[in-house]
Simulated scan of single mutants.
Amino acid sequence: MAETAWEWDETLYAGSARHYSVGRWPYPPELAETIGSALDLDCTGRLLDVGCGPGSLTLLLAPLFEAAVGVDADRDMLTEAQRRASEAGVTTVEWRHLRAEDLPADLGTFRVATFAQSYHWMDRPLVARRVRDMLAPDGAWVHVSANTHQGVNGDDGLPYPRPPWPQITELVARYLGPIRRAGQGALPAGTPGGEAEIMLAAGFAGPTRLTIEQGMVVERSVAEVASAVFSLSSSAPHLFGDRLPTFEADLRDLLTTTARDGLFAERRQDVGIAIWRP
């Protein structure tokens, strides 16, 4: 594949939505408690969750607000979010299918805007400016940094083997090539950094950084780790085309032969929070 400037397209996570509930850990309850305490949230005001995916963060934080809006560019993600909301009995969230670049989209003013594992896919300077204008004067932009599909690397003793992530990466590369795929394009150097400079240039102040230390050991099944792989943009189901059944068979064979009694164990990674003020 020729290396050209990457551009977002709607296939970025095509086929991945149904794998989130199986393959990705939920955010810890402490995340809501920490954000609520840091921002003195009192069940008033509105939350805007940008790039909400299947609503993992939206639904966790929704009880801290009067109402919430989850925005995502992937229809399947929003269908999954609506399903989760219905199962949880949450009725205060509105789900909107649109790109962050299309904000404000007449959505009004918000007390808090959140981004979790999503901001790097956007036109960040543009989105920062537009979302800043949507925040109340005493509002906040909250960026949650977390890895919910894979645990901490290490050689400390766990009750079951760790998932063979290096071999999984090699297997994906055998099917898709050595350069990271993302939608219809590729990211040879990975997703971009430099968030702080962008936020400051957009007129934000901060950040205040907080960390939720986890370190808990969790058990995972072969099916859960397989879904974790398919939940990633770099190995989303659509990328494999008609080779998807063969790849999935190879993946499950790898996982089955490296698991013990069908199980793996991983130590969860810490969650970072950056709070910016308009």
Rank of each mutant, 00 (worst) to 15 (best):
Glu266Asp: 11
Pro237Ala: 03
Ala186Met: 13
Thr58Phe: 02
Asp253Ile: 05
Tyr20Gln: 12
Pro137Thr: 00
Leu60Cys: 06
Pro125Ala: 02
Pro163Ser: 10
His120Met: 10
Thr258Gln: 06
Met199Thr: 02
Ala67Leu: 01
Arg267Gly: 03
Arg174His: 10
Ala226Glu: 00
Pro29Thr: 02
Thr114Glu: 00
Arg83Phe: 11
Trp121Gly: 06
Ala223Tyr: 01
Leu200Pro: 01
Ala249Gln: 14
Arg124Leu: 05
Leu232Phe: 00
Gly55Thr: 04
Ala67Glu: 14
Leu126Pro: 00
Leu232Gly: 12
Leu255Ser: 12
Ala62Leu: 04
Leu158Thr: 07
Ile273His: 05
Pro26Asp: 14
Ser234Ile: 05
Ala146His: 05
Val69Tyr: 11
Glu213Val: 10
Tyr13Ser: 04
Leu126Met: 09
Tyr119Glu: 05
Thr92Asn: 15
Gly70Phe: 05
Val90Thr: 15
Ala81Tyr: 10
Ser21Thr: 11
Ala223Met: 03
Ala113Trp: 06
Ile275Trp: 09
Val142Glu: 12
Ala236Leu: 02
Arg180Ser: 06
Gly89Arg: 10
Leu158Gln: 01
Leu187Trp: 12
Pro163Cys: 03
Asp242Phe: 00
Ile212Gln: 02
Leu60Ile: 03
Gly194Trp: 09
Thr257Asn: 13
Leu244Gly: 09
Leu47Cys: 02
Ile273Arg: 09
His238Trp: 08
Ala116Gln: 12
Ser234Tyr: 15
Leu12Lys: 09
Phe204Ser: 01
Ala116Asp: 07
Leu126Asn: 02
Ala228His: 04
Trp141Glu: 09
